[in-house]
């Protein structure tokens, strides 16, 4: 095949270039995100893993420009070839809930308590697609059926508080899918659910993602959730991605000492009678931009070279990469 006939690589659905977010208030500065580069292909599921405070939610919110005004955002955010940071307010309103939608841990942050579920979905459809009221209501019913809410027709008239936790989560997903987004952002949507309900919602999201061909960025601190749903994972620590790669090889053995520690300290299988491996210490304060490996104070492998500068992202082969001087390029 001649070079001229080869297709160019498809443009990514989402691309973050050197994204940084700083919160500056009178008495303190928080460097929440410090130079994140990330790509998502169409129809791909990326899990962002990390402990609380590592910058997962701030990264997602930056993508939708949902951060407070005083947050300073630098770098590039591109979704479906459009520069998100350059959008004006009107374009942004179309973009949110149109091309990109978001679901949260607490469904009541996304659902309005004073309107019925059917009305809320129809509202989104009318606003974004200019559909008639009747068409929008028909679509709302379709969506409730899509997210497998039993007796969907009756549930159109239900208020959010009349639904159980699992059903509310499904209703929120229905609202998010109302305009067939290309990109779904999910911030720990199953963290507050029972395992029996969590697995139902994860299977539903996976099925919908495949059926609708959406790209999904799924934030979680739970390795098991990533194991069930991710194509690729990105691990964040102190506002940076420290490891990224396909989920299978990652779960079999992470490259970077931080996710290695995270995996070892997660209780799984029969570990009774064993002393659990822990990561000593706590994550660093984010009051200044780190100038060396942020993990070094807690890392058993740390050596003087780790303090020389922020370790570069090393390509380890097979689509895997990590920010640690011990990783060999492959």
């Amino acid at each position: 095949m001649s070079a001229a006939l080869q297709m160019p690589p498809a443009a990514p659905l989402m691309k973050l270039t050197d994204l940084s977010v700083t919160f500056q208030t009178r008495d303190r500065t928080v460097h929440a995100v410090n130079g994140v580069n990330m790509e998502l292909a169409e129809g791909e599921v990326l899990c962002i893993l990390g402990e609380s405070g590592s910058g997962k939610s701030v990264t997602l919110r930056a993508l939708m420009r949902l951060l407070p005004k005083f947050a300073k955002v630098t770098g590039g955010i591109e979704v479906a070839g459009q520069n998100v940071l350059a959008m004006n307010d009107r374009r942004m309103a179309d973009f949110r809930g149109g091309e990109v939608a978001m679901i949260f841990q607490e469904p009541m942050t996304a659902l309005d308590p004073v309107f019925t579920v059917g009305r809320q979905i129809a509202e989104v459809v009318q606003r974004h697609e200019g559909a008639s009221r009747a068409t929008a209501m028909a679509r709302a019913l379709e969506l409730l059926e899509l997210v497998q809410i039993p007796s969907a027709k009756r549930r159109l008239d239900a208020y959010p508080h009349e639904l159980s936790g699992g059903l509310r989560q499904r209703a929120m997903i229905a609202v998010a899918l109302a305009c067939r987004p290309k990109l779904l952002l999910a911030d720990e949507p199953t963290t507050a659910l029972d395992a029996t309900v969590q697995i139902q919602v994860l299977l539903l999201l996976r099925e919908l993602q495949q059926r609708l061909g959406m790209g999904v960025i799924f934030v979680t601190h739970d390795l098991g959730v990533a194991g069930e749903i991710a194509d690729r994972v990105a691990v964040m620590y102190a506002g940076r991605v420290v490891e990224e790669g396909p989920v299978g090889p990652f779960m079999a053995g992470p490259l970077h000492p931080y996710p290695q520690g995270l995996l070892n300290s997660t209780v799984h299988g029969n570990m009774r009678g064993k002393v659990l491996t822990t990561i000593p210490g706590a994550p660093p304060s984010l009051s200044s931009v780190p100038t060396s490996c942020s993990f070094s104070p807690r890392c058993a492998l740390a050596e003087p070279a780790c303090e020389a500068g922020v370790p570069a992202m090393v390509e380890a082969g097979g689509g895997r990469r990590g920010r640690c001087i011990k990783i060999t390029a492959g």
Binding site: P150, G166, D194, T196, A226, G227, E228, H268
Partner: peptide, 21 residues
């Protein structure tokens, strides 16, 4: 059976229970 599996080779396909408690 509802525990998520860390191994992507053993993903669930059917939820062990339907509905909420």
């Amino acid at each position: 059976a509802s525990r998520p599996s860390m191994d992507p080779a053993f993903r669930r396909t059917v939820p062990p229970l339907v509905g909420d408690p």
